[in-house]
């Protein structure tokens, strides 16, 4: 791991994405610059079709952009082949999607330890790390349940545990609360926030302003472009103001 010390966790440089060719070409992203630091949660907001999900899959190396560069922990994704991208997903990134995050044939703890086992960890060590991660999302006692036996919120919490297990640093969440009711969604966001505050970085794609507000920075996306952003003050500054 030779990440440059001053590199952010994630950097998007002029990332663009076109689908199709010529007259039927669709522009999903048109030159997006974005950085995510450790301990920072960035929300991406925008109407459907604004390109926010595409941005996330590009950041996670699931989709190759047609232009620009994605740099994760100092590694240029355009330089990596499929196998190396898979390794990146095992070691650095964790996805949390709206639903169907878990492999239904695996128990909660097996789902969480999946990336570690894939990465060649010893089974016992992987399971211990997975149990710790489940503990953090308060689901240790559900470790041996299958996803079908977990509520939607519990499933998302397992997904968050999996996204951060084994010291993985970048959480990419695509509408993680989209299928949940308001208070359950809030609990999931609280977990997400806690993992970020503990040192991870994250992107949260959502169309719900209330959920986006959990982020340190909200980036507004329209027609594949960033049209603005809003940054919150730190908690300390907030405390100072209300004192």
């Amino acid at each position: 791991m030779t990440a440059a010390t001053n590199e952010p966790l994630l950097r998007l440089d002029g990332v663009s994405m076109h689908y199709g060719h010529g007259a039927t070409s669709v522009i999903a992203l048109a030159g997006v610059d974005l950085t995510v630091e450790r301990g920072e949660l960035v929300a991406i907001m925008g109407a459907s079709g604004s390109g926010k999900s595409t941005l996330l899959t590009i950041a996670g190396g699931l989709t190759r952009p047609t232009g620009g560069e994605v740099v994760v922990e100092g590694r240029w994704l355009s330089e990596l082949d499929a196998r190396q991208l898979a390794t990146l997903r095992r070691r650095t990134l964790g996805f949390v999607f709206q639903d169907f995050n878990l492999v239904p044939a695996l128990t909660a703890i097996e789902n969480v330890s999946l990336p570690l086992e894939l990465d060649g960890w010893k089974l016992r060590k992987a399971r211990r790390a997975a149990r710790d991660a489940l503990n953090v999302v308060e689901l240790a006692e559900r470790a041996n349940h299958f996803p079908d036996d977990l509520s939607g919120g519990q499933q998302q919490r397992v997904a968050i545990a999996r996204a951060v297990v084994g010291g993985r640093s970048l959480i990419l969440a695509d509408e993680p609360t989209g299928a949940l009711d308001s208070t359950t969604g809030e609990m999931v966001l609280r977990m997400l926030r806690a993992r970020v505050d503990a040192g991870a970085g994250g992107i949260l794609v959502t169309h719900d302003p209330r959920h986006a507000a959990w982020a340190d920075r909200i980036v507004f996306l329209r027609d594949g472009r960033i049209v603005g952003s809003s940054e919150t003050e730190s908690v300390e500054a907030l405390a100072r103001r209300s004192a």
Binding site: P209, A213, W214, F220, S230, T232, E233
Partner: peptide, 12 residues
């Protein structure tokens, strides 16, 4: 952006 910031502050 202004309202979002308010919202973020409140959430914080």
């Amino acid at each position: 952006e202004a309202t979002a910031r308010t919202l973020q502050d409140l959430t914080r």
